[in-house]
């Protein structure tokens, strides 16, 4: 077995997760190759250190300070609330826009300059309203 092949299998060799024949091949190579042996030792050391880390059972403490992430995480649990708030906001927005347009329309209807644009024959209130509406919507 060549160095580059062994190098790919060292990690599994450390974990003894290789098929027996491959395991034997790698072991044989490690006996003769100091560079691969050094890599094997480094990998084994990482495993040992990681196991040391794994022996620690962290404290179930926390609550330290406020972080943006934490705040958002708490808020995420109220997702439904957010959806309702957004829908409500949209509804209010739509009403505001409609109200604003209505007020613009009223202004146009009640504007005497605007009314003078129509002939006197048709200058009854209802007709003006209809024609102003048509004017506003671009159909006149």
């Amino acid at each position: 077995m060549q160095c580059h092949e062994v190098s790919q299998k060292i990690s599994a060799f450390v974990d003894e997760e290789l098929p027996p024949w491959e395991y034997r091949e790698v072991a044989r190579h490690l006996e003769i190759c100091s560079r691969c042996r050094a890599e094997y030792r480094a990998f084994a050391l990482i495993k040992v250190v990681a196991r040391e880390i794994g022996k620690v059972t962290p404290k179930k403490i926390p609550e330290r300070g406020v972080s943006l992430e934490h705040v958002m995480r708490v808020l995420r649990f109220r997702k439904t609330l957010w959806v309702i708030a957004i829908l409500f906001g949209l509804l209010v927005g739509i009403f505001l826009i409609l109200g604003w347009q209505r007020s613009l329309l009223d202004e146009q209807i009640l504007n005497p300059n605007h009314l003078s644009a129509f002939s006197e024959d048709v200058l009854t209130r209802t007709q003006v309203r209809v024609e102003t509406l048509e004017l506003v919507t671009g159909e006149y």
Binding site: G54, T57, P58, K60, R64
Partner: peptide
């Protein structure tokens, strides 16, 4: 306990692990 450890090592934060 094992699950908490797993979550802790993934997140690196006890609070997030608990969540």
């Amino acid at each position: 306990t094992n699950l908490f450890r797993f979550a802790y090592y993934l997140t690196g934060n006890a609070e997030r692990a608990k969540d």
